[in-house]
């Protein structure tokens, strides 16, 4: 930690406090995208091995969450959104969070190797390293590009799921990675637009803090356009198809229009209605990602059932 923070230990932790260290809400997104990556792959996996693989990918993600809570306890204590977490709340010591994170990192990587293969395990190990060391320890406090680079950590799960099934990396898995990678900046910067004070207080160099909200709105629009190109491009790849393409066109049109609306607003207008458009954009970004992966899974499901909607696709 960059400076000392004394957090008084209040009482003994419950089982739920340790579970909370694994960031269950982030884990649920990881489970979903990893399962999607595994399901859309053209190789079928034994259901028990698929279940075990997704479980250990989720535990690996949880382990990096615990490491993040160990290192960021000082930031979390200052920000309203995170001040109730187990470490700043004084229920779990930072050392316990670190130890749990390290132990589960090792366990999840070894178990994923045994349940799946070396490529998937190596990707998981790299993801944990990337999130805990590159993002949390190094870049988060150093650069306003923290969100862009940190987004890569969240983008790996579908790639790991794909590797569990195929034992390798391919164009399709890189495209799924790119989809989440490009989605993360607009998603988080929309949050930062209405949570700015928290980040300012904690001294995290969010783009909204270092370059102002005007620049952030420009960046959101730019990334949304790039994101749309990738999202629609996936429709023409091996995992795409008519169902996905229709969904992607609809979702991206909606997302781009909302990004355009955010870009046109200024802070006076945003203040006047309590950042309503920004909050709605953030909410939409969640269903945006969910529905894209759901459409990919629907496409794979139709394929498996042998149903062709458009001849010759």
């Amino acid at each position: 930690m960059t400076d000392t923070t004394i957090i008084p230990r209040q009482d003994e932790a419950s089982f739920g406090d340790f579970f909370a260290l694994l960031k269950p809400r982030v884990m649920s997104l990881v489970v979903f995208t990893a399962a999607a990556g595994l399901f859309v792959a053209p190789v079928s996996v034994h259901p028990v091995l698929a279940f075990a693989s997704i479980l250990f990918i989720a535990i690996g993600a949880g382990a990096s969450g615990a490491l993040n809570m160990w290192w960021d306890a000082d930031i979390d204590a200052v920000m309203r959104r995170t001040s109730g977490r187990p470490v700043p709340g004084g229920r779990v010591t930072a050392e316990d969070a670190r130890n749990l994170g390290l132990a589960l990192s090792g366990l999840s990587v070894v178990m994923l190797y045994l349940a799946a293969n070396l490529v998937a395990a190596a990707l998981l190990a790299f993801t944990i390293f990337f999130y805990a060391v590159i993002y949390t320890i190094w870049l988060k406090r150093a650069t306003p590009q923290n969100i862009v680079i940190g987004g890569a950590a969240g983008a790996f799960p579908p790639m790991i799921g794909w590797a569990v099934a195929t034992g390798g990396v391919s164009v399709e898995s890189v495209l799924m990675f790119a989809l989440i990678f490009m989605w993360t900046p607009p998603h988080f910067w929309a949050l930062a637009l209405f949570m700015n004070e928290d980040y300012t207080k904690a001294g995290v160099p969010m783009l909204t803090v270092t370059h102002g909200r005007r620049k952030t709105r420009n960046q959101i629009l730019a990334y949304t356009v790039l994101l749309a190109a990738i999202a629609i491009g996936i429709g023409f790849s091996g995992i795409g198809g008519p169902v996905y393409l229709v969904a992607a066109l609809g979702l991206n049109a909606q997302f781009a229009i909302r990004a355009w609306m955010l870009w046109r607003r200024d802070e006076a207008a945003a203040d006047a209605d309590g950042y309503r458009a920004e909050k709605r954009f953030f909410g939409l970004s969640l269903s945006y990602l969910f529905l894209h992966f759901l459409a990919l899974m629907a496409e794979a499901g139709l394929d498996r059932l042998g149903i062709t909607l458009v001849e010759g696709w």
Partner: peptide, 13 residues
């Protein structure tokens, strides 16, 4: 009360 919480933790583990 602490014993109850420990019991919960042990059971969970």
């Amino acid at each position: 009360e602490l014993h109850g919480r420990r019991k919960g933790r042990n059971l969970g583990l």
